[in-house]
Design a protein around this nucleic acid. Sequence first.
RNA 1: GCAGGUAUCGUAUAGCGGCUAUUAUGCCACCUUGCCAAGGUGGAGAUGCGGGUUCGACUCCCGCUACUUGCUCCA
Length: 461
Amino acid sequence: MSKEEQTELRSVMDSVMSLCKRRGFVYAGSEIYGGLANTWDYGPYGAQLKRNILNLWWKTFIEDRDDMLGLDSAILMNPRVWEASGHVANFADPLMDCKSCNERVRGDKLLEEHLKTTIAGLSNDEIYNKVMDEKIPCPKCKKLNWTQPRAFNLMFKTYQGVLEDTAAQIYLRPETAQGIFVNFKNILDSMRVRLPFGVGQYGKSFRNEITPGNFIFRTREFEQMEIEYFVRPEQAESVFKQWVEDSMNFFTALGIKKDKMRVRNHGKEELSHYSTMTVDIEYEFPFGWGELQGIAYRGSFDLDQHTKFSGEKLQYRDPETNEVFVPHTVEPAWGLTRTVLTVLVDAFEEEALEDGETRNVMHFDPKIAPVQVAVFPLQKQQSEKAEALYKTLKPHFRCEYDESGAIGKRYRRQDEIGTPFCVTYDFQSDEDGAVTVRERDSMKQERVKIEVLAEFLKAKL
RNA sequence: GCAGGUAUCGUAUAGCGGCUAUUAUGCCACCUUGCCAAGGUGGAGAUGCGGGUUCGACUCCCGCUACUUGCUCCA
């Protein structure tokens, strides 16, 4: 990619951010107090868009399927959960600073690069000693002048109870997934399920990322949609492949351009502590490729760990053979807030018009557009009739009524927030009982009878 | 966390150590308007926060905050 192209893409990002603020999609957090780093608030259209994406996900993967169940577990959990999951031990980067030039590196990565092998389970002291034994210098200034590794645990800590003593120290969840494993037994006992089946939930997670950024791409507070799909070990591979396919289909259903997405296999060295097979679904953002979703084959790691730490047997008994075993899991994990960014960036177009003007158009898929139908009177004489029509459509679609300014200006307003259909009640409507429906993408106009209008629009959504 | 860049009405911008801080667009009201940002009149709206230098700071200096580029990473 050339410098010019990068600058161009950078300005796309700026345009999207500016539009988000101007049109009520996303605002900077705590803005009137000078902001708080990396926090963003979703405005009316942004909140609606996020919810629409979430609802489509829930419908696609939970409601419409016989093998899926929904769950909504707590953000605050017993700290032992995170010991079992490995997050207390592994979800921290041992960062070392070079005292000579201030370069900061991950101690474990430094070792791995030097030794050309993967290492795991070393304590900070062990990492430090090993680095000093091997005399691994700073990659930047080539001096051997490291600080002790300091663990920056990515989990947010807080306190339960009014006294800030350590006994009550708990974490904000860094992922929603553990809530599913922890409820595995509850679900088996209450829901009469059979393998293979999955449990899905969405919600906020929190990670003290060292380097957040890129608008709402990487934020310390974010929303995920996660599924744990439980299978017999021998089913895992085919189920895994099926999830990759289903996931891509979901993104396509959101209207995201296929040629901007790719599936990327994780190499051995980047697999996380729990996974033996992982793929990412990535999108090409203006700032580069970024992960939208990870699909990880976790084996029986989580259920085994929680069995070990809790003492509860997390197993499955086959009702026909009476065979007892620990199911394996395939975990598709989406970033919801990231998906919102993707949809915003992907839908954005600065369209050049014939007269040299431009119009900003958000080409949201009609299913997830914050506003689906806008209703106008051609002029204020038709206000009353148009408003009455708006009220009949409102229960069936996400609707907006606008009578302010010239008709062309109202079209443009709706283009900018991605409304796919505009309906205009005009001078003829009284006589022919019809209205003009204008489509955002084609800018085509069509005359539609009012009595079939709702049906007509529904067919297009 | 380190190194660089940036910070002026909602958005995009101009400018200056000193007069009422520029322009465009958007927004609000009224008039006008027979389908793609028409026109007229009026209106509201900004120097991120704190300190210093100075008779006087939006402008110069320092600190903070936020955004951003690179290192990092992963939903």
